[in-house]
């Protein structure tokens, strides 16, 4: 079972690190990268493109979402997802959203978790054990 791992981050190095660590950890994952929040939103709102570019459910996609990005921030992405999927529709189940930031600010965490569907808050740099834990935690049932 290949896990779709989505990295939404304007920093190319951070996307590259995730890709490398997925490989190093030996996770059966397909890493899909977006360098901007709006590009990610465009794809997930479009059922067909989502299936083509990320993969069809199940398993749900694992989304690592950066906060500080130009144009629209990670929080604004959350807001858009909340509006688009907020009615408890099954679409929300197809994503495991983890914030992915260098910020250890309490305010940032608070804001992130104010969206009920945000499952975790990962502080950069991400490491193999953290990645492993995430995959084990969210995919052990699958």
């Amino acid at each position: 079972m290949t896990i779709p791992i989505v990295v939404v981050d304007d920093e190319q190095v951070d996307r590259y690190i995730v890709r490398r660590l997925v490989k190093k950890a030996g996770i059966d994952g397909k890493v899909v990268e977006f360098q901007a929040g709006d590009e990610f939103l465009e794809v997930i709102m479009d059922q067909q493109r989502r299936t083509e570019e990320i993969g069809s459910a199940p398993p749900p996609m694992l989304v690592l979402l950066d906060i500080n990005m130009p144009r629209i921030t990670g929080f604004e992405v959350l807001e858009a997802i909340d509006e688009g999927f907020g009615d408890g529709g099954s679409d929300a189940d197809c994503m495991i959203i983890l914030m992915f930031s260098s910020s250890n600010h309490a305010e940032d965490k608070q804001e992130a978790f104010s969206y009920g569907f945000v499952k975790d808050y990962i502080i950069k740099p991400i490491t193999v054990p953290v990645l492993q834990r995430i995959v084990d935690q969210y995919y052990e049932e699958n």
Partner: peptide, 11 residues
């Protein structure tokens, strides 16, 4: 500082 300075450092 926590975003703009820490981010490149974390990367």
């Amino acid at each position: 500082a926590s975003h703009d300075l820490k981010a490149p450092l974390a990367s």
